[in-house]
Simulated scan of single mutants.
Amino acid sequence: MIRAILQLGLWTFVCGIFYPALVYGFAKLAFPKASSGSLVEVDGKVIGSELLAQSFDSPEYFHSRPSAIGYDTSSSGASNQGATSLSLSKKVEERRMYWISRGGTEPVPPELLYSSASGLDPHLSVEAVKYQIPVVAKVKGISGAKLDRLIEDTIESPEWGLFGSSKINILKLNLKLRTVYLEENIQKN
């Protein structure tokens, strides 16, 4: 009985305290920003995370991929609606009309019409972001060429140069857009 209690205490310490503390400490040393959630601050205030999508409803910013869960970071998930779902067809058509009404052209990239499996993907393909250039340029009063250069500067390569395709983090792009817009307004005044 005493041996069993000692073993319980030993393995509780090793697996419940020592190992988690070791992993936590290593993560904090090796990946300090990522281990803290890759939070993004502006003027000392946390505005989001590089790892999670958020809603950009204002027409003066690039939009993230639609989210079936309303960008709720407490859980992730998809709508689980299939190709025969009338509800999904209606949502996709509403999203398509939204982009067309804002000055977009056909075809609208699928990433702007369908939500992702997690509902929290922070990236879009380069093509889906470039599709939004005329819409954002019109509202912001920034040239399409300048927005194109901004996008090119924000492109992230595939993971380790091997996995996936080039992509753009929408939060980072919108923060750069905000900076460019503020600088242009300061120069005008």
Rank of each mutant, 00 (worst) to 15 (best):
L52E: 11
F31S: 09
A4I: 09
I69H: 00
S115T: 04
G161E: 11
R178F: 00
V92L: 08
N169W: 04
K146C: 10
G104F: 01
G103C: 06
L175D: 13
L6Y: 01
T154R: 01
I47N: 01
L52P: 02
W11E: 03
D148W: 04
I17Y: 00
P20E: 04
E184K: 14
A34F: 15
Y114T: 09
N174G: 09
G44R: 13
Y61D: 09
R149T: 12
S87D: 12
P66I: 12
V135Q: 11
F56Y: 05
D43L: 04
S38C: 04
G119D: 02
S118H: 09
Y181S: 15
I133M: 03
S55A: 13
V42P: 00
I186A: 15
D148A: 04
I168P: 06
L52G: 00
A137E: 05
S118I: 02
V136F: 05
C15S: 14
Y61I: 00
E156G: 01
G164N: 08
K140C: 01
P122L: 12
A4Y: 08
G70Y: 07
E50L: 05
V136M: 09
K45N: 08
Q132F: 03
A78E: 11
E159R: 02
L162Y: 00
S101C: 00
K33R: 03
E184Q: 12
K90H: 12
S143N: 08
G25M: 04
L150N: 03
I133K: 07
V40Q: 10
A117L: 06
